[in-house]
Simulated assay, not measured.
Amino acid sequence: MTVSWSAYRQARRRSRQAWMLLALAAVSTVAGLFWFFTAGQFAVAEPAVAGPAEAPVFDPAWMKPVVPVNRIPEGHALDALEGLAVKGRAGKDNYDREAFGQAWLDVDRNGCDTRNDILRRDLADVIFAKDSSCSVAAGRFHEPYTARFVDFRRGSESSRAVQIDHVVALADAWQKGAQRLTPGQRQSLANDPLNLVAADGPANQQKGAGDAATWLPKNKSIRCHYVARQISVKAAYSLWVTEAEKDAMKRVLGSCRGQQTITAD
């Protein structure tokens, strides 16, 4: 069979194009592998939500410790979780916030009420109200539950944007052992800095009295600390967990088995 010179040249041109495409693909592959094994793998590994990995607990410069019922066990939070009793919820028909004492008492007797103590602890660039060394008028912070940067300004409306969350909600505590505590012990639980975090108002409202089985912070980077803190509070005040709550806590801590319990030390 006779092949024309024109057909031969077209075949050679197509062959050269095919080889050029293969060479480009090889170069792209090598470049991609180089990027992945240098900077790329670290970029992929970054968490989807950036934010604080833990929340503050205690500042000995101006705060005094609140004495809990029990000493918090040191070590892995998973081990402390295994030490908590597992029971169903008690009734809450008789729950009353006043059973935990007046809100925001100066339990540690440092001269400032608990709400302002927590705002001062958690906020940066704190500005006090005029002629006060306690009343926090303004500040900003990296909010732990949403990972957003939030500005706080004291006011009837603006103060709602930043609320003080009980990490173990008081209504949840009431259903899981707090009814058996003395009034003084419940007062300590409600004002213990270990159990308090300045938080996004809407997120706090969404949480309500939920436990780990029904609510976790949107910011995944804080979840290990948050769950460990709940376990620490429950161990400190002889509170129990439900089976569903324990399972949820174990799932969270499964991604951070080295997570320690949280103390004020």
Rank of each mutant, 00 (worst) to 15 (best):
M1T: 10
V3A: 13
W5P: 12
W5Q: 15
A11Q: 14
A11T: 11
R12S: 10
Q17P: 01
A18E: 15
L22T: 08
A23W: 11
L24Y: 08
V27N: 00
S28K: 00
L33C: 13
W35E: 07
F36P: 08
T38H: 15
A39Q: 13
A48N: 12
E54H: 14
V57G: 01
D59W: 03
P60H: 04
W62N: 02
V66H: 01
V67C: 00
P73N: 12
E74M: 13
G83T: 09
V86W: 06
A99G: 04
G101T: 05
G101Q: 09
G101I: 05
W104V: 03
D108P: 03
N110G: 07
G111L: 09
C112Q: 02
L119M: 09
R121T: 05
D122S: 03
A124G: 10
A129F: 09
C134F: 04
S135F: 11
G139K: 04
F141G: 03
F141V: 04
E143D: 07
E143W: 01
Y145S: 03
Y145Q: 02
D151S: 12
R153T: 14
R154M: 09
S156V: 15
E157G: 02
S158D: 05
R160P: 00
A161I: 11
Q163N: 06
D165I: 03
V167F: 04
V168I: 14
A169F: 08
A169H: 06
L170T: 01
A171K: 11
D172V: 04
Q175G: 05
Q175K: 10
L181C: 06
G184Q: 14
Q185P: 02
Q187N: 13
L189Y: 00
L194K: 03
N195C: 02
A198F: 02
A198S: 12
D200E: 08
D200G: 02
G201P: 03
P202Y: 10
N204M: 06
G210Q: 13
A212S: 13
A212T: 07
W215R: 13
W215F: 15
K220N: 13
S221C: 06
Q230R: 13
I231S: 03
K234Y: 08
K234E: 07
A235L: 12
A235K: 13
A236L: 08
L239H: 04
L239F: 05
A244N: 13
D247C: 00
A248W: 12
L253P: 01
R257Y: 06
Q260F: 08
T263K: 05
